[in-house]
Nucleic acid binder design. Structure first.
Lengths: 194, 194
DNA sequence: CGGCGCATGTAACTTGTTACATGATTCC
DNA sequence: GGAATCATGTAACAAGTTACATGCGCCG
């Protein structure tokens, strides 16, 4: 039974399947290219690299000629490639999505409209930042077209991000307007008492 | 320093702020009304209820007249209400979103198009189910209008779901088409050989 | 009276974050 | 030589899931 629940291992295998990388580089790539749908911490990556090496799914080598930083790089092994392929085939587990901002909004009322406005604006800002990150990646991708054999698949993933962001942006706009409305006329909190 | 990281406590406080509920009922509500943006397991809820009671933020009482199942119900205390309000005010933490389906798609290639098709179709199906759940809730909400004072806020949250769901649906449709295309013409994997 | 669904709870485990320790290199 | 950044790693903790144990009431 080779398939484990832990997803970190598969992100690592997936990235190493394209190029040789160090732990630090893996983290950097996740934080840029994958950031809009995935995240990992160093505390997950380094121990996992160790484990994968022990299991023989990846192999470490030291940059031989490196005049600068001698970082420990990893390659995927044939066994690792096989496990990656097997993981790709098994069904996706239930998505666990948690939007704290929605939770707060859900439990808020007219009295907290000002605060919610802040939260939504923050949400908007963050997703704009993320959007810029991903547009950068998209440009990169268009330049060195087909470096990876999964060029089209990556574009599909980017399309997801684009669509979802558009709905975020449109929702933020609408919601900010509604909240400003409530803030301006707090007494009109339902159908117009008074 | 009253504010803790643990979000389960705030979901519980938020729900109890509207009505008296048992642990089981809390779980059921999260699984229906909040399911599209939140989830909790019994293993989180029951111990948390205990802790909140110890801290005096909620109080337990047994249904007195209950001829049927005597479930332990909880009420929020004034102290609990205060902590809830305080939590509402503090900024939202970075959203941690993990779409396993995108990860798989990202690491896949032309050879695994058939499998990815399965995954995306599954994703589509799940979100259709979720949509039905929330449409049910929306109807309910429209019937007993303004039972809660946060009627408008709940509608904003639902609007989020609706928008995001629409982008999911549209993305699934497009992506399924693309993948079927690749599946049908695997040799045409980039700009059209042959 | 046996099984099923409701209901509460706990323990073991896995997963994930945070804070810290360490050292090398680069830039001022 | 001191600060910043690159880079690797670990230990302690927090969060979350799963599987299990238990008991009650209802239905056939």
């Amino acid at each position: 039974m080779p398939i484990k629940k832990n997803k970190t291992r598969y992100v690592i295998l997936g990235l190493l399947n394209e190029e040789h990388l160090s732990g630090y580089e893996i983290k950097r790539i996740i934080d840029t290219r994958l950031s809009f749908f995935w995240s990992e911490s160093f505390g997950q990556i380094y121990p996992q690299l160790k484990e994968l090496e022990t299991e023989g799914l990846i192999a470490a080598f030291h940059q031989p000629d490196s005049n600068s930083k001698a970082s420990k790089k990893y390659t995927i092994t044939d066994q690792g490639k096989e496990e990656l392929q097997q993981w790709l085939m098994i069904p996706v587990e239930k998505e666990i999505i948690r939007y704290e901002v929605l939770l707060k909004l859900y439990f808020s009322n007219a009295a907290s409209s000002d605060i919610m406005l802040e939260h939504i604006k923050e949400f908007e800002l963050n997703h704009n930042k993320q959007r810029k990150l991903f547009e950068k990646f998209e440009e990169q991708l268009k330049q060195d077209i087909d470096v990876h054999g999964n060029h089209r698949q990556v574009l599909m993933v980017l399309a997801f991000g684009q669509k979802v962001w558009e709905s975020y942006a449109s929702w933020c706009k609408e919601t900010i307007k509604s909240l400003e409305d409530i803030s301006a006329n707090p007494e009109n909190s339902d159908k117009g008492a008074d």
